[in-house]
Design a protein around this nucleic acid. Structure first.
Length: 273
DNA sequence: CGTTCAACCTGGGCGC
DNA sequence: TGCGCCCAGGTTGAAC
């Protein structure tokens, strides 16, 4: 159970909290953790009901640099939340939220708020089990470039910038291709690549690039960055065909792809007669 | 409907 | 060494 909750300020911009730090501390202390679940990129810590309160969830959205840690943080400076935890017959532990850039958010939500934060209007089916039909239903008629569309969490939850690039390389689809031009077979390939890339990334405990990116709750670095085929590989030979990998910008974010072996549907030829 | 831009932040890496 | 850029596993809202 939570014996103490604090939200250090230390001169940096306060963490985006809902409700504010004082109310949050009051509502967290003494509560018991019931379960921890993941929805796409969001983590929901379920709190058992207490007194007249119904069940509530602490929803953590790490964004770019936020991490939940049970070990000492890289620096004290960017610790945004400290939960002192105690369990029967165990030494006390601390659950920290450490976030260098401070873009992450923490919200305490009731059932209603949870539905809004994690429901189908916000988060689509999880990428680890996504099917081609789900993708096609949501994106099949979209005019957006397929890479931009894969980052839309309402269509499929859990794909970020690294994995969008790796998925489309594995599926051999050009990230610039418009969704509506993709045939059913392409969606099958994309769905299969999404499941396999994400499963491998989970197996490898994510991609740790430099010291600022993802680490596990006990601070282990991931190894999936060693398997990246295109992300951050500008100019390096494509692992499939040897053509140099290219970088472009889509929706203000970097995209990496092989200009030779990632397929783009031809523009429809206008035919006479 | 889709795209672009700005904003929220800190910090590493680069060229001059 | 310092400074000004560009870049970074993300999300949101406004403007066109």
């Amino acid at each position: 159970w939570i014996t103490g909750a604090s939200f250090p300020v230390r001169g940096v911009r306060p963490l985006s909290l809902s409700p504010g730090r004082t109310a949050l501390r009051r509502r967290l202390e003494g509560r018991t953790l019931a379960a921890v679940t993941r929805f796409g990129k969001r983590v929901a810590v379920e709190l058992e009901p207490e007194g007249r309160r119904s069940r509530e969830w602490l929803v953590v959205e790490p964004r770019m640099t936020g991490q939940l840690l049970v070990t000492d943080p890289p620096t004290e400076a960017h610790v945004r939340m400290i939960l002192e935890l105690e369990a029967a017959r165990r030494p006390p532990r601390r659950l920290l939220f450490w976030d260098r850039r401070g873009l992450g958010t923490i919200r305490l939500l009731d059932e209603r708020g949870l539905a809004a934060a994690l429901g189908p209007a916000t988060l689509g089916p999880d990428g680890l089990s996504i099917g081609a039909d789900d993708l096609r239903k949501h994106l099949g008629r979209s005019r957006r470039a397929v890479k931009v569309a894969l980052l839309d969490q309402r269509a499929v939850a859990g794909i970020g910038n690294i994995y969008a690039a790796e998925i489309l390389h594995r599926a051999a689809i050009d990230p610039r291709a418009a969704c509506r031009r993709l045939p059913p077979a392409a969606w099958e390939a994309i769905a299969a690549a999404t499941r396999s890339i994400l499963a491998e990334a989970v197996e490898c405990e994510g991609s740790t690039i430099g010291d600022a990116t993802y680490k596990t709750a006990d601070s282990r670095s991931g190894s999936f960055q060693d398997r990246h085929r295109v992300y951050g590989k500008t100019g390096k030979p494509c692992s499939t065909c040897g053509t140099p990998i290219v970088r472009c910008v889509q929706g203000q974010r970097s995209t990496f792809y092989c200009p030779a072996c990632q397929w783009q549907p031809r523009r429809r030829c206008s035919r006479l007669s």
